[in-house]
Simulated assay, not measured.
Amino acid sequence: MIPIFKVFMPDMVSDYISDLLYSGKLSYGEYTKEFERRLSSFIGNERVLAISGNSILFALKLIDIKPNDEVIVSPMSCLMTTQPIVYSGAKVVWADIDPLTGSLDPDDVKNKITNKTRAIIHYHWSGNPGYIDEINSIAHKNNIPVIEDATESFGAEYKGKKIGNTDTDIVCYSFTPVRLPNAIDGAGLSLNCEKLYQKSILMRDLGVNRSKFRDKMGEISADCDIDIVGDSATLNNISGYVGSSQMPFVFDLIEKQRKNALLWEDFFKNLPCTKVVSKREGVNPSYWAFTILSERRDELLNSFRNQGVYASKIHLRNDLYSIFGPPSHPLRGVDEFSKRQLNLPCGWWMDENDFNRIVRDV
């Protein structure tokens, strides 16, 4: 079975792990810092940090989301994207999507803004960036921060710039096993504002300013005040080492996924009742998976599975879960997209021989 997701790990990554485990240098340290430097260089933004835990939840705390605040988000998202809203005590406001791209519909986002709206979470479906300029423009006019969820779209580009360097307030990543890069666990943020970046550094470390925290004797200094509520969310050095070791490979792996996407596009070019998810002008997806839209979705899913290709719907629309309260108002774009979307393996582990077999058998 060709898997839809697979864990990447460089061949030599284990060579130093044992030494590191017994070095005593397990908490946030030199390798986590190196991982952050490499992330910053790749993304093109100096304001990047790695954290443990859920980056969306961290971002909501960072912008002081409070109970009864409203956060706009698409129901066609991962639960890692939407559950933090409920966990923070805020109210989820579902917005519709463009049924051809799976991305937030700017017009519906505009209609869902109220005087209680405190954030917009912009989820990029399966590595395909959405209406970045349009959503950001609406948000800025209303003085609302935008949190982009790039969990599935690390390395994707918009107008020649990497996601995380396109003037969005906060961009969130995940470094869990099936992501590129993966650090076994953890997450990251890329920020557009220096003040918010400096706040995030303090907030991930219990509000502690490490440059002032200890005196000359190494004791905790009474002169270092803690004036911000924080979390113990620094990324450990083991994860930093694993993540850093992957960064030299990420560009080539994503380029291979883009080449695989071209093969899929050619495969589906003449298939009746099926189309490839639209790519907007200026968008260069990273193809965490390859999404198609088909009136024969379930038939195709079974056909691919029977031939050893793990096709999947990946996400169930989140507004069906009772944790979010009563069903949302009709969302025509979500209705259409959720009934037709199907995702296929497009990762670095696939090659042309796989596609030749798929063409022959499916």
Rank of each mutant, 00 (worst) to 15 (best):
K110D: 00
P177D: 09
A183N: 05
G188H: 05
D223I: 05
I144T: 13
Y131E: 02
V208K: 06
T114R: 08
S126F: 15
E219N: 13
Q198P: 02
W125H: 05
V146D: 03
T168L: 01
I121Q: 03
R214D: 05
E194D: 07
A187N: 01
K161M: 03
G160M: 09
Y241D: 03
I170D: 03
G160W: 09
N182E: 09
I163Q: 03
N115I: 06
E148K: 09
D185H: 13
E152W: 12
F175Q: 03
L202P: 04
N115M: 09
Y241W: 02
R179L: 00
I228H: 02
S244W: 01
V208G: 05
G186M: 07
C193K: 11
I147V: 04
L191F: 02
N115R: 07
D133S: 08
Y197Q: 07
L235A: 03
S200N: 05
K162Q: 01
H140T: 10
P177N: 04
L180V: 11
I120E: 04
L191K: 02
N115F: 09
H122W: 01
G130R: 04
D231G: 07
V146S: 15
H122M: 05
L191N: 02
A222H: 14
S200G: 14
S200P: 12
T114D: 06
E194K: 08
G127N: 06
N237Y: 00
E194M: 12
Y131M: 05
C172L: 14
D167C: 11
A150S: 15
E134G: 09
L189D: 03
A222L: 12
N111D: 15
Y158P: 00
K195F: 11
G243T: 07
E157G: 00
G164Y: 01
I238K: 14
M203V: 06
I220E: 08
V208Q: 15
T176K: 07
M217H: 10
P177K: 15
E157W: 02
V208S: 14
H122A: 02
K199C: 13
E148M: 08
R210P: 04
N136E: 07
S200L: 13
D231Q: 14
N165P: 01
S232I: 08
A187C: 12
E134I: 10
G230I: 10
V178Q: 14
Y197W: 02
A187G: 11
